[in-house]
Amino acid sequence: MGKEAGLIEPYERQIAFRADDAGCDRAGAPVARGVCMSLKPGEAVQLFGANGAGKSSLLQLFAGHSRPAEGAIAWREGEGAWSPARPYNGVFFMGHEHAVKPALTAAENLSFWAQTYGLTDAAAKNAVYGALARMGLGDYAGVRASRFSAGQRRRVDFARALIARREAWLLDEPAAALDAEGADLVAAVIGEHLKAGGLAVIATHDTLTVSARRMVIG
């Protein structure tokens, strides 16, 4: 385990996010409408709402995977201008699926993502093992993900957040399938992220122990 045991270093950039009356569709049907929020560095919002209310669709919209059906979203870097485009290398998105390949080990899965997130080989190796240790999977780095439980896969997927080191986290049910200890771990890491100057939008059913504003969708 690393000396600083996974404390997230303060981010160099200050990124802010805003949604103005934003609405999104799912499969052509309107789901969320009139969503307004404004997030400064260090702030977080927890999205609540029934199944089908459009929490995931909103996160997809914020991540830039879809276009707003109405209203607008905007990002700002430092004191720069607001822009609808997500800041370069500024957003980390975790969907409700696990982007974890069963055939690969935990470390191999994360190494792939480390490269995708632009880390050099040397940096990737440290980041992968550091992130796995932080998520309580230090002893499982060489184990194939097919042997993991759903909660363990979730932990591997969440470890991506520590590797990507992005200022804005968009998390869809980060604590799904996690045990109490895992949920606390995720909440603690999100807390560190906010303290480091990051922001987060979290769709969730169960309240995570994170200092975040609450917003109900639908």
Partner: peptide, 16 residues
């Protein structure tokens, strides 16, 4: 198929 289903494709498309 696998990459589309587990969300990998979406992340790759956004990151690269």
């Amino acid at each position: 198929h696998d990459d589309a289903r587990d969300g990998s494709l979406r992340i790759l498309a956004a990151e690269q």
